[in-house]
């Protein structure tokens, strides 16, 4: 029901910022996420960063699947 795509924060200017993916840059509103830093990945929905991506969790998910023995 809601498209959200992971994009990297490349500029922060108060509540506004710029996010990037594959060379595509777009202005984004960052007011719904706290403590963002340049280089963080956020989930972008309707022009807003609605959450920060947790890299540790992302890697854990993949590792579990890789380690799965069938």
């Amino acid at each position: 029901m809601c498209l959200g795509i992971p994009m990297k924060v490349v500029k922060i200017d108060g509540d506004e910022g710029v996010v990037e993916a594959g060379g595509l840059r777009k202005r984004a509103n960052l007011s719904l996420t706290k403590g963002l830093r340049i280089g963080d990945y956020v989930l972008l929905h309707a022009g807003f960063a609605i959450e920060k991506l947790k890299d540790k969790e992302a890697r854990k998910t993949l590792q579990v699947l890789r380690d799965m023995h069938i």
């Binding site: 498209l3 795509i5 994009m7 993916a21 594959g22 060379g23 595509l24 777009k26 972008l44």
Partner: peptide
């Protein structure tokens, strides 16, 4: 190409 794919993901 890179860029086209990302734009497609972004805009649906």
């Amino acid at each position: 190409k890179r860029g086209v794919r990302e734009a497609c993901e972004l805009l649906g």
